[in-house]
Design a binder for these strands. Structure first.
Length: 619
RNA sequence: CGGGACGUGGCGCAGCUUGGCAGCGCGCCUGCUUUGGGAGCAGGAGGUCGCCGGUUCGAAUCCGGCCGUCCCGACCA
């Protein structure tokens, strides 16, 4: 990395070089000055025509083809120099938005002692029940977890310094590596075992203040994703294993997403399908008639049942599905889950409602023992005593319904809750689907999406467990309200690629591109072209534009294809008209090209860069 | 963890059914020509066929075990 040189633009370029290399040393064989890192000929550009066979997600394929990524193992990736620049830009944007709110950056340890995890009650959960935390032992026998998250440490750090409400509210954050032993890493960078995360922790004296802080962080998240150029929606989410009182996630619609976002066309309702509710209209109750039994040979599904009870619509039926669940303590239990005949059960909601760690459809033997019938005839009336019954809220509104008779080829009709059978425990078990009525009066549609950010209002769980409290204005000491806020950096980059690409490659938004502009000299060695290209590169750098010069001795087609695959927002091409000081200016997103004076190209790109300025080295 | 697939030069793949010299495309190296959309010609380098064991005169190929990777599901802070 030598930085001296005698080329025409070397004075300006030299100013950009790291101090120790900025002076001394002789010339170079390369034409026109010498700022190696600003020349693609000195960088490793390992583009490929074809993606590795293991890459299936578009973002994984394109990042791998662009040479920005290399897989080290399942869910483990080496981030190449170009991708690192993008990650650094993402981090810079996140820092700026957090610092603007007065958040303070710090760094927790990756290795965390067992004891605080014991104190919060999460050691067992995270190392045994759902062993997502990798752990190890020191030579002296101390047990350590490799941090999958840092609530415990966040509570402990604050406990050491916070004692009064006057020090609050406060937000601490870090940007650091997280380790999670994911059972199934997938889709390239979207789900990995090791990744960079921005995690923030908020501290407030009371709930009202905590809710405000939570809201401000959520707004900052929206601002961050907007700057990044990622289309995201904020949605109500599952509080999950974190525990807490409120939670929202930021979902970036993308075909590869693991989450489903239910959103209303009326615009005011959005939720992850894990918690989404449809606004179901209760079917009108029929005239009271005594419960009766109907012979229904072979009617083991809603469709085959319908002809036997033609006057009863599916919404006036109650479906009974039997599940075998595994509880957190390892126990096995049979659950009868009830929903309306026209609806279905969301198994993740069922798991949450029953406290199950695992839910599976019951097998035929379990069904026979619970119902004394072949599969397909289960119902709430007369189930085996030891079967726990849980119903979706919507079934409470259904009366005079049809349900399985717990005898082969038999159903009951005109069943009334309270009269014929007790209304069971109720919970939200309903699986929402495309076209369902939304709570805000609109219609729900489901979209695949990538979860790029998640915010939690935690309450006082961790502060109580770890001794974090503050004295209020009334002189009473109370546990501090905490919140926790995460953004996955690599996943964010991958989501951007999922949303911004075309058949030629990646189309980075300006704010997060590895470089804002690439200057291409069409024929390496042509003095006019090289001279102009280097001059432009220098001018761009002086204008604070992150530019590189593709000075490689390669055919133009290769350079163009690489520029498009890597996805630089701007390409300035010094070619035929270089001698006259004219270049082509190409906007990657549209492919639009115009022939302009070099100075105009520089100012045009500089203007775009200014609009999307990201400070890579703050302070 | 359940189901499915795959593992052969750097990358993508064929060969395996029916055992008999390890191949193709891209990339790489050298030379000449070429030079505005992934160049042409000529020459060349590069592979313990994932690992271990078995069967066989002989194994990339058949058998067993193991490891690794991907996809679907389960799970997911």
């Amino acid at each position: 990395m030598r930085c001296a040189g005698a080329g025409m633009a070397s004075a300006t370029l030299r100013a950009r070089c790291p101090e120790p290399f900025a002076a001394g040393r002789g010339g170079t064989s390369r034409p026109g000055g010498d700022v190696p890192m600003r020349r693609l000929s000195n960088q490793l550009i390992a583009t490929r025509r074809e993606p590795p066979a293991d890459a299936s997600a578009v973002s994984h394929q394109l990042l791998a083809r662009a040479g920005m990524l290399q897989q080290a193992g399942a869910g483990l990736f080496t981030v190449g120099p170009l991708l690192l620049r993008t990650l650094q830009r993402l981090e810079a944007i996140i820092r700026e938005e957090h610092d603007a709110l007065g958040c303070q950056e710090l760094r927790f340890t990756h290795l965390q002692p067992r004891e605080p995890w014991e104190a919060s009650g999460r050691w067992q959960t995270l190392t045994e029940d759902d062993p997502i935390m990798l752990r190890t032992r020191t030579r002296s026998g101390a047990e350590l977890g490799l941090g999958p998250t840092h609530e415990e440490q966040a509570a402990l750090f604050a406990a050491d310094g916070v004692s009064s409400h006057r020090q609050l509210p406060m937000v601490l954050y870090q940007i650091a590596t997280k380790f999670r032993d994911e059972p199934r890493p997938r889709s390239g960078l979207l789900r990995t075992k090791e990744f960079t995360m921005k995690d923030a922790y908020s501290y407030d004296a009371d709930e009202a203040s905590a809710a405000q802080t939570y809201e401000r962080l959520a707004e900052a998240y929206a601002a961050i994703f907007a700057r990044v150029g990622l289309d995201t929606l904020r949605a109500d989410a599952d509080v999950g294993a974190m525990g807490g009182t409120m939670s929202a996630e930021f979902l970036a619609p993308a075909g590869i997403g693991e989450d489903f976002l239910a959103s209303s066309d009326a615009g005011s309702y959005r939720a992850n399908t894990e918690v989404a509710r449809a606004a179901l209209v209760a079917p009108p109750a029929p005239e009271q008639r005594p419960m009766s039994t109907v012979e229904t040979p072979g009617a083991t599904t809603m469709e085959t049942l319908q002809p036997f009870v033609p006057d009863v619509p599916p919404e006036r039926m109650v479906k009974t599905l039997l599940y075998g669940i595994t509880t957190a303590e390892g126990g096995q239990e049979v659950i009868a889950a009830l929903c309306r005949g026209d609806r279905s059960i969301d198994e993740s909601k069922l798991a949450k409602a029953t406290g199950a760690v695992e839910v599976a459809m019951a097998d035929a033997a379990m069904i026979r023992s619970a119902t004394h019938a072949d599969p397909g005839y289960a119902g709430p009336v007369g189930l085996a005593e030891d079967v726990r019954v849980v119903g979706d809220h919507a079934i409470a509104e259904v009366q005079g319904f049809v349900c399985g008779g717990n005898a082969t080829d038999t159903h009951h009709r005109d069943v009334w809750w309270g009269r014929d059978v007790a209304l069971p425990e109720l919970a939200d078990l309903d699986r929402v689907a495309d076209g369902d009525p939304a709570p805000d009066g609109g219609t729900l549609s489901l979209t695949r999406a990538v979860e790029v950010g998640h915010v939690f209002l935690l309450g006082t769980r961790y502060s109580e467990a770890l001794g974090l409290s503050a004295t209020g204005p009334d002189g009473v000491e109370r546990p501090v309200w905490m919140g926790s806020y995460g953004i996955g950096i690599e996943r964010l980059a991958a989501a951007v690629v999922e949303q911004h690409h075309d058949d030629k490659g990646i189309v980075w938004p300006t704010a997060v591109a590895p470089h804002t502009a690439v200057v291409v000299s069409v024929r390496a060695g042509d003095p006019d072209q090289d001279g102009l290209a280097e001059r432009i590169t220098g001018q761009l750098l002086d204008a604070d534009v992150d530019a590189v010069w593709d000075d490689r001795d390669a055919r133009p087609g290769v350079k163009f294809a690489d520029a498009e695959l890597i996805g630089f927002p701007w390409r300035i091409t010094a070619g035929r008209e270089a001698a006259g000081g004219r270049v082509e200016l190409t906007w990657r997103a549209t492919g639009e090209t115009e022939v302009v004076d070099a100075d105009y190209a520089v100012s045009r790109v500089a203007e775009d860069a200014r609009r999307h300025r990201v400070r890579l080295n703050p302070r």
